[in-house]
Write a protein that binds this DNA or RNA. Sequence first.
DNA 1: ATGTACTTTCAGGAAATTTTGAAACTATTG
DNA 2: CAATAGTTTCAAAATTTCCTGAAAGTACAT
Lengths: 166, 166
Amino acid sequence: MNLPEGKDKFLQSWGAFGSSWGVNRTMAQIHALLMIAPQALSADDIMEELKISRGNANMNLRALIDWGLVFKELKAGERKEFFVAEKDMWKVVKNIIIQRKKKELEPMLKVLDELSSVEGTDPEAEEFVRMIKEIKLFSSKADSTLDTLVKADSNWFVGTFMKMIK
Amino acid sequence: MNLPEGKDKFLQSWGAFGSSWGVNRTMAQIHALLMIAPQALSADDIMEELKISRGNANMNLRALIDWGLVFKELKAGERKEFFVAEKDMWKVVKNIIIQRKKKELEPMLKVLDELSSVEGTDPEAEEFVRMIKEIKLFSSKADSTLDTLVKADSNWFVGTFMKMIK
DNA sequence: ATGTACTTTCAGGAAATTTTGAAACTATTG
DNA sequence: CAATAGTTTCAAAATTTCCTGAAAGTACAT
């Protein structure tokens, strides 16, 4: 396979992958494009390669920066901004975990906590509280496991984790 | 908080949670409803509680059954079908991992494999192949870690895993 | 302080996803 | 086998999400 074909296939696949996990398809594609780029790209480069508007490029680049997956790079003598992706996969995944944990898992834990105090003695209320508590227990464990995972160092997952769980 | 309020809040939250992870909001809500139900519910029960059409209820119930998160239950003397949810959270998560690994992670691995044979000696092709290989390495590790996780028994995650990674 | 080169914002339009509901289908009953 | 009770399918409608592009904003250079 040659480069243009391969590149296109990667952009499509990474976009579809992101999309199926609730990440905007274009955001994932910009991320893909920057990950495989040998140097920093400008907004115009990205707009051209992905055939998207300036507004779209800008909004998704900001989001990627928020997630810690992309960095702004200023070139001496150039007024425009360039962008580079984080290329260490462990850092990429770690940042994604941090963000999604904060935005999705933690709010859910808070809700589960409130719900475990629902009153009632009928079977429906009892089963409700029982199940909420089961979900909360599991979610808390997942939450602290992710905390531990995120605190571990770069090489830990790739090296040690595999052996430990064998 | 009383039961109707709590129930509603749970259905909304679980729906939003699923939605942010790329799962159809209604599918997540049906799942939530069945998880907290003390007995099996019929399609009509679900349609009424969630105010959704028969077609919608039916399609999402089939999907939940495919995922191994809901089971059909036939009551003696009743012609209609009833549905119960898997209530063991470890089994729920395990089944979700199995499905998403198969439908999303594995196809991605296959693509990465094809892409690592892209030809070229220019910096762009070299960086492309280098990065694809880095992503593939990481993804393969994640894939086998999930395999191991899924083979582990019900109580393992909740009990042992936490201590091991400390 | 005016011009230039960019970045940001966001209302409205486009596209993708989800939902509906009615017709077709299936299985059971009398 | 006709009627009944339920399930499934899917084209069209409704909704949600995403994208565009032009106007406003920012900052640097002259």
